[in-house]
Amino acid sequence: MAPVYEPGQGVAYPKPTAPKMTVEPPTISRDRWLGPAAPLYRKAKILLEKKAYRQAELSMERALRIEPKNGYYWYTLAEIKHAERQYSRSIQLCLKSKSLAGGDLNLIRLNEQLMAKSR
């Protein structure tokens, strides 16, 4: 339970319950990030390796229409843009991916590394 401060005391102590509608959001589970659009994601990865960038991008955009909150998919799109040397776009996509990462340190690290490479 997060600390609670009372005026004039400055001392934290736990409150018994939190109101129902203000629950903290969850973070993305690392082992569950591949969803129904996984086939499109895998196809995009293969196309990226083959340097078929436009096709890879189209495949990832399809994947994102289905799983728009998947930070890993946004990251993959950022990778494609980086490979196409569109660095500023790659950075923007990394920022988006990072905004969806929640507490997924792996995804945060991946994005920071790619952004560093793109700068």
Binding site: A2, Y5, P26
Partner: peptide
């Protein structure tokens, strides 16, 4: 009903009225 949360936030239970 839940949204993913940014790592840059902390959630705190506060008594706004008293505070």
């Amino acid at each position: 009903a839940l949204q993913s949360s940014s790592a840059g936030l902390v959630w705190v239970t506060v008594d706004v009225q008293k505070n």
